[in-house]
Amino acid sequence: MEFINNIFVNIAGLCRAVFAWLVGLLHLPDVLVDIAMVAVYWLAIVVVCVLCALFYVVWERKLAGYIQRRPGPNRLGPNGWLQTIGDAIKLVMKEDIVPDGADKPIHLLAALLAFVPPMLALAAMPFGEGMTALDLDLGVVYIMAVTTLASLPVLCAGYASNNKYAMMGALRVVNQAISYEVPQALAILSVVLVAGTFNLNGIIDFQTGHVWLILLQPVAFVVYLISALAECNRAPFDLPEGESELTAGVFTEYSGMRYALFYLAEYCNMFVAAGLATTLFLGGFTGPFLPGWVWFLLKTFVIMSLFIWVRWTLPRIRADYVLRFCWKVLVPLMLVNLLVTGVIVYILV
């Protein structure tokens, strides 16, 4: 079990050793080893992220099917699990339509840039013991800063499409993203206040030493999940892509591979949010018997399933209620939470 727990750390160590030997052999500067390792880490993150997104595409549809009394995809592959391959092939084979008056470079760039914020955030995510590509002392702040960027490509997409529906969707995205940053930040701040550190591995150590932070900060957990849903534009906050109101909203003019990019990016964003939730509240990669990274994946799976369950059950909230709910309910609630947490921490420590 120790071996499997550390398998990826060992592989990384092996890669580093190979690069160091190559560099020594070819008499190249030592810094190339680090650069090569960065490339390896980046590749690993991309692979993990994309694989998870592909998995969750099928899982979402199957779970939606079970909620709706129907089987979901069950044709492609054993019980339908290879559905994503079919989806990917279909979307790639579609005609790439860009509307006449659209801003063509930004139209494409928005789709590509949608992947950047989740990749940046996953760089600092502790996947397992010693498996953090970028173990920053301000890891929490870094991830918060980077996830804010996730709404920019959507805004660009809405602007570049030259379409009223898309424009309305883009405006709603900006509304939501800016507003729900605040309760999310306050929730994370409450956790940091209890754990005493911004370092993600440090927060996990705190939870190993004491108790999972979800038990100490239940309100912050719920508010964090709500804010994460809003940041990811998932129902009940999926107004930007308000399917039954604005046809496809921001993504009206995106078809084929460009749409696929946004679609996958949405799952990557959700994965980041779920990963952060497990790290901050559910103890990260710790757990008995199984290797750390397996626990991490299992916990994110539970949170993602929760996201999917909420999406397929609740109706959509109206645009002005979204903002009203954020500023009049969540922010005061989190401020009170922060105050109470601060007082208790001061008294007990």
Binding site: D238, S244, W312, P315, R316
Partner: peptide, 9 residues
Amino acid sequence: DLGAVSGVF
């Protein structure tokens, strides 16, 4: 139409 797609099944 209000958004809860499962409610139609």
